[in-house]
Amino acid sequence: MIHALKPTTDLANRIARIYPSLSNGHRRIADHVLGFPLESATASIEVLAERSGASNATVTRFVRALGYASYGEFRVALSDALRLAMQPVDDFADARAMTESASGTFIAALKMQRANIEEAMAALDPASIAGLVAAILGARRIFIIASGASHHVASFIEDGLALYCEADVVFATARGGPERAFRHLNAAGPGDLTIAISVPRYSRTTVQLASHSREKGATVVALTDGPTSPLAPIADFALFAPARSPLLPNSPTAVFALADALITAIARERPDAVEALKDLSRSLLWTFQH
């Protein structure tokens, strides 16, 4: 079953919070809403009850358990959640209609990426950067969590930090599902550091794992798109990389740029960085073409 409301929305978060405590009847309604949100948003209470195998009274109790005063208020929230889920598709259609040529699209994308990087640079605070670099260099272990498109940024950071940091670097979400990542992070504690990476539409798993790390006492670093991200209030340090794109759901360019800059700053602070690069070059010499 494809859950169209998987992106972080108020309604999806409300369902996720109470789902473990729901009765079987309420779970059937929740599953139906998550699996068929468009149908549910246009259904009367009688139709939703029939299609989820519940009664009208059960639907009413489910709606109130989510914190909505009425079924009408619930339908408005569901419609809002659908708009958020479909926004990238709508933006894609609008931008495609406005594009005159392939080359025009190409140049527009580069300009947007440049604007994203410039905005990311403008948001940087020197004192915060210094504190972040010191925290990474002083960490006992570094856990990295990301999914979707952010997975590639996480792999890049993992390779860079493993080269320049003495800490063990663990890409916790690289293999297996969330359960495996939670097992990794159960070992986190004071002295450890977790880097969480997510841009719209935000990964609920990444946000939950970041919260779990903070609860365990680890320092949390967020690499995300802005202060309204759900990762921002969790983080001890945050790097903001706007991810706007004229046609794609998001652009990773600014996120990669910040990741590259962070690794570069870490390398500068390591007096043995040159030797580390020499060792790497010697070990890989046979793989080079020239």
Rank of each mutant, 00 (worst) to 15 (best):
D168H: 12
S147R: 15
A259G: 15
I142D: 01
I29F: 03
D159N: 12
V221K: 06
A139K: 05
V76A: 13
L185Y: 06
I144Q: 07
G160I: 08
I195Y: 07
E179Y: 03
V170D: 06
P88C: 01
L137T: 05
A259T: 06
A172P: 11
T228I: 03
Q208E: 15
S55W: 05
I197M: 06
G148F: 07
T8E: 14
S103P: 00
G35S: 14
L5G: 07
A261L: 14
E269F: 00
S103F: 11
L284H: 12
L137D: 04
P88D: 01
F74L: 10
A57H: 13
R61L: 11
A222M: 05
G35P: 03
A120D: 07
L223D: 09
A123W: 07
L285N: 09
G72S: 14
A95N: 09
Q87F: 02
A130V: 10
V47A: 12
L163G: 03
S251L: 05
P20T: 08
L110Y: 00
V207W: 09
L223N: 03
A115V: 00
T264L: 13
Q208W: 02
F62N: 11
D236A: 11
A108W: 00
S251G: 04
I195K: 08
G226W: 07
E39C: 00
N186V: 06
F92A: 12
S155R: 12
G131M: 12
S283C: 01
V153Q: 04
Y164I: 04
R268E: 10
V199G: 09
I142S: 02
L34T: 08
A146P: 01
A130H: 14
L277D: 06
A115D: 14
A196H: 10
T287P: 00
A16Y: 02
R204Q: 11
T173W: 03
P246C: 01
L78G: 10
F182L: 15
A139Y: 10
S70L: 10
T224F: 05
Q208A: 15
M1R: 12
A232E: 06
S229D: 06
R64C: 02
A97P: 01
A135N: 09
A238Q: 01
R64G: 03
A93L: 14
I266T: 11
F288K: 10
D225G: 00
L137R: 15
T264N: 08
A41P: 06
R51V: 13
C165G: 01
M98H: 11
D279C: 06
I142T: 10
V76D: 13
Q113E: 15
R64M: 09
I129F: 08
G25L: 09
A16L: 05
F62A: 10
H32C: 05
L247C: 03
A97H: 14
L11Y: 04
D125H: 12
H26F: 03
A167E: 12
A174I: 00
A257N: 11
L262W: 05
S198M: 08
G53I: 04
A265L: 15
E118S: 13
S198W: 11
R282F: 12
S40K: 03
Y19N: 06
P252R: 08
L193I: 06
N186H: 13
S44M: 07
S101D: 06
A65D: 09
L137F: 01
P126F: 07
